[in-house]
């Protein structure tokens, strides 16, 4: 499970670095990716599409809250919950 979490975090981080062109060193698992400006609204739309395709989850209206997407940690927990459901 720990390996799963670490792998998920790594995939999300790689995606963020690749699409935001930000310095990988600056993006931590707890960084607030929207508040700190790594992503704009187009970035959010693309992130959701990436998560759905990469992790086979389906995002519902009620999922679109800050607590699920604010950081790599939050997204990882969100994916784990979705997969467990």
């Amino acid at each position: 499970m720990t390996t799963d979490i670490a792998a998920t975090q790594e995939k999300i981080k790689n995606y963020i670095v690749q699409t935001s062109h930000a310095d990988a060193e600056k993006i931590k698992n707890e960084s607030l990716i929207f508040k700190e400006g790594f992503f704009d609204s187009m970035g959010f739309i693309m992130l959701i599409t990436f998560l759905e395709e990469e992790f086979g989850i389906k995002t519902q209206d009620s999922d679109l809250i800050e607590e699920n997407f604010e950081s790599i940690n939050a997204i990882t927990e969100f994916i784990q919950r979705k997969k467990a459901a």
Binding site: L32, F39, I45, T49, T59, D61, I65, E66, E70
Partner: peptide
């Protein structure tokens, strides 16, 4: 999304001739 820290998401709405609406989160592409 204006009062929180994540941006809004766009939805696509279609309306059939009888006026029934359906919507979905719009994928990026």
């Amino acid at each position: 999304g204006l009062f929180n820290n994540i941006p809004p998401i766009f939805y696509l709405t279609v309306i059939d001739p009888a006026g029934n609406e359906k919507d979905k989160i719009l994928p990026a592409n």
